[in-house]
Design a protein around this nucleic acid. Structure first.
Length: 426
RNA sequence: GGAGAGGUGGCCGAGUGGUCGAAGGCGCACGCCUGGAAAGCGUGUAGGCGGUUUUCCCGUCUCGUGGGUUCGAAUCCCAUCCUCUCCUCCA
């Protein structure tokens, strides 16, 4: 949520920023709504002043037993009452209109976000590792998983429909191994606090992080008005909702392993096969709450952690800087990690590391108190570290053998009970 | 799910229609006292919005949240959220 005061004072700059998001005339519109509201509030307050003064006089008159004076005064202010009631309702409407307008405006992007229409214009920062070359034709993960008899889309479809999967045996354990491996890395080596979060949240929480009001169709909603989280970024970031932290409590670094639920409303037909795009998946998420001066370096630290997961797993990947056309609603700047998938013969997104500046903090009322005693909004960051399903896809495709075995990356051996390879069925 | 109780400032807690944004206490800040500290004494101590263009002042709103009644609401009414107790159910 943007600060209307700031928009008022920096209209041109704000418009420029929104232009990059393909929105025009935003500042004028916001200022117009704000002006209408403020003009109205000024009038309303004038009426309230009259009423308050009159009421005080009535109180005094009654206290001194001067009933006649009191009655006269009451008669005099009676008609102000109606005007105030109407005025209050109008104020509510004007405020709501302004807030609704502001709530659907995306964050201002950082200057270093490149212009671009879509993901094709993202900028590659660096590559790590070489895409694996096989002396046989690399299979896609779903062929490998189904051949192992440990990845079952058909049975899942019977009970849940499309975009669900059932993992069993070694692949089920691999899910757990990956989660543990990632959580251990983030907690033990980076000091992030592990959290188990609610998967069902109310609309306020989602408005705080920016999934609402614009992207309701992406969410699953329960009959009692709650929503399944699309990422535990929502729950983790909302940990500091409506709080005032002490400056020395910053940064707060959280990590969580959770299920995520997405309706994938806009992606019918995309990635219909396999585990790449599911209605339900798991993810280890990182969220940081920082001092405004520290969010830049925090994003680099978060990126480093996510990269380290891929490095330890021996997976080739590249880091891209998202362009203006691909960056998310709440983000100021996003780096995506794309892992190499031999079966698909391309890089696919496996993590996204974003800084939101104070955008989410404003929406949530997440603040901190400076040593000088001032309260100020914190900065929030989030990043996947990593999406488990897609990591499994990457392992299957990168560690497949000609016979259809899956070698298990060394760092996972201990998490897999010493198992080093998942053998194909002969 | 049923019955009841309750949500007041950083914290505790008083306040059932009239100068209540709110007694008192704790905490905190400053000052006095002290060799220094504690104790004691004194003073001060919420936030949002708008105006003023400011280290001052004015208005307004805020006693879980949202409505309503009233000239006037922390106080009355309705709705809603949350917390606690008992019962029921349950992993």
């Amino acid at each position: 949520m943007h600060d209307i005061k700031w928009i008022r004072n920096n209209a041109a700059m704000f418009d420029q920023a929104m232009e990059r998001r393909k929105l025009s005339g935003v500042a004028d519109k916001a200022i117009e709504l704000d002006k209408a509201r403020r003009d109205h509030v000024a009038k309303l307050q004038e009426l309230q002043t009259q009423r308050n003064n009159a009421s005080k006089a009535i109180g005094k008159a009654k206290a001194s037993g001067d009933e006649a004076v009191a009655q006269a005064a009451i008669a005099k202010v009676a008609d102000i009452k109606k005007a105030i009631q109407q005025g209050e309702e109008t104020e509510r409407n004007l405020t709501e209109t302004l807030n609704n307008y502001l709530a659907q405006l995306p964050n201002i992007m950082s200057d270093d976000v490149p212009d671009g229409a879509d993901e094709d214009e993202n900028i590659e920062m660096h590559k790590v590792g070489e895409p694996k070359i096989f002396d046989f034709e690399a299979k896609q993960h779903f062929d490998l998983g189904e051949a192992l008899g440990q990845m079952d889309f058909e049975t899942a479809a019977k009970m849940s429909g499309s975009r669900f999967v059932i993992l069993s045996k070694d692949l089920a354990r691999l899910e757990r191994a990956l989660a543990n491996f990632m959580l251990d890395l983030h907690t033990d080596e980076y000091g992030r606090e592990e959290v188990v979060v609610p998967l069902l949240v109310n609309a306020n929480a989602l408005e705080g992080t920016g999934q609402l009001p614009k992207f309701e169709e992406d969410m699953f909603k329960t009959t009692d008005g709650k929503y399944l989280i699309s990422t535990s970024e929502v729950s983790l970031t909302n940990l500091v909702r409506e709080t005032v932290l002490q400056e020395n409590e910053l940064p707060k670094r959280y990590t969580s392993y959770s299920n995520c639920f997405r309706s994938e409303a806009g992606s019918a037909g995309r990635d219909t096969r396999g585990m790449i795009r599911q209605h339900q998946f798991t993810k280890v998420e990182m969220v940081s709450i920082t001092h405004p001066d520290k969010s830049e370096e925090e994003q680099m630290l978060m990126l480093e952690s996510a990269e380290l997961v891929l490095k330890r797993l021996g997976l080739a990947y590249r880091v891209v800087r998202l362009c203006s056309g691909d960056i998310g609603f709440s983000s100021k700047r996003t780096f995506d990690l794309e892992v190499w998938l031999p079966g698909q013969n391309m890089y696919r997104e496996i993590s996204s590391v974003s800084t939101c500046g104070d955008f989410q903090a404003r929406r949530m009322g997440a603040r901190f108190k400076t040593s000088a005693g001032k309260t100020n909004f914190v900065h929030t960051l989030n990043g996947s570290g990593l999406a488990i399903g897609r990591t499994m896809v990457a392992i299957l495709e990168n560690y497949q053998t000609k016979d259809g075995d899956i070698e298990i990356p060394e760092v996972l051996h201990s998490y897999m009970g010493g198992k080093k390879v998942i053998k194909a069925i002969k």
